[in-house]
Computed example of a mutant assay.
Amino acid sequence: MAPNIISTSLEMHAKEDFQKEKSSVTTTDDENGMQNQNETRIKSEGLFKFKTELKWWNVVSIILLHMSMLYFCYTFKWFEDVRTTIWMIIMGVIQGLGVTAGAHRFWTHRAYKAKWPLRIILLICYTSAGQDNLYQWVRDHRVHHKFTDTDADPYNARRGFFYSHIGWLMVRKHPDVIRKGATVDMSDLDRDPLVVFQKKWYSYLALFLSIVVPTIVPWWGWGENLWYAWHWTVTKYCINLNITWSVNSAAHMWGVKPFDKSITPTDNAGVSFLTLGEGWHNYHHVFPWDYKAGEFGNYWFNFTATFIDLCAYLGLAYDLKTASANMVKKRVLRSSEMSY
């Protein structure tokens, strides 16, 4: 099973899903459509308040991916050759930075500006993570920020931990995600030649960067067993996915809310450590344009901010946006978090 099977399936079925969902949305614009939608909502039972159609390809892919990871974790001799373990950790950090410093803070929020060499590096790092084409990742995340905790939020945390963590990938989008998501401006990415190129060739690029390279290097480099190298790649991919998803789930469930108590996002140090600095989520939803994505930038709990600072020092990044200490203080006081 290919490690990027989830993202590849999303890419393959994106147009089909969009057309089906879009047509279902447009039928609700007239009076009869609204009545049918309301009847569907009333008849629905359980967690979801809308008719939920499963994406069976994604369901099976996710299950097989996690089964492969568990099998490998049980059978692998972890310290037989430490070089393989170190290699996979390095790859995990590189891919993580592609998501955090690239897809999230640069392309989604434009929290800083990057020169072309850094843009290319970030795009390669992100593609190697195998988390779908960049355009779709950014679109979903911008919709999430604009419509947080509503039906238009692709990974709405108010539907529970499982849905916000992984369940949203297993079902078709809520009609509000399509309807209101269309209001999100994506013109900057439409004009970005790197994003357009990556979107067009994503399947091939991800296959090479997220599967072939991580597997072949230890095999060719120091004679690692190819079977082990393959399963290491699958395991690393699965772990990285769950770390990324934890921002949508754990960082919306457990933690503190010193900046805005009315929303689900929280500041969670554990999630921040695992995600290279993405766990200061209550702060981030209040100041999404801050390149640090947190009140403080430090090596252990915000490695992404450290990386961006290094890029700025090298002249590759500039115009780093951040909230002033006074602005942060006023927001805390406004939130009545006097003990913070």
Rank of each mutant, 00 (worst) to 15 (best):
G297H: 05
E11I: 07
A152W: 03
L314M: 05
V271M: 09
A305D: 00
V328T: 11
D188Y: 03
T85K: 01
G294N: 11
L10S: 04
L320H: 03
D192Q: 02
W289F: 07
M253R: 14
P218K: 06
W168H: 12
N298S: 15
D132V: 13
V25T: 09
F162I: 15
T264F: 02
L274D: 03
K77M: 13
E295G: 00
T52I: 07
E224P: 00
Y313M: 06
L123A: 14
S23Y: 09
G181M: 05
A129R: 04
S324N: 07
K146C: 06
G160V: 08
I211A: 10
K199V: 08
F106T: 08
E45G: 09
G130H: 08
K115Y: 03
M1T: 15
T27N: 04
M67I: 15
N225I: 01
N4H: 13
N240P: 03
T84L: 03
F197L: 12
I63S: 14
Y74M: 15
A157T: 03
P193W: 12
N240H: 06
M186R: 15
T264V: 01
A312R: 05
I120T: 05
S187M: 11
K51T: 10
F147E: 09
L123G: 12
T100F: 15
A229Q: 09
K43I: 14
F147D: 04
H165R: 04
T75C: 11
A305M: 00
R334Q: 12
D190N: 13
H285T: 08
V332A: 06
T52W: 03
F72H: 15
K200P: 00
A14P: 00
G130N: 05
C311Y: 02
W245C: 07
G279T: 10
P3L: 04
F48L: 10
S128V: 07
E278C: 12
P117H: 02
Y313I: 10
R105S: 09
V177N: 05
K199Q: 14
N242P: 09
Y204L: 13
L189Q: 04
L70W: 12
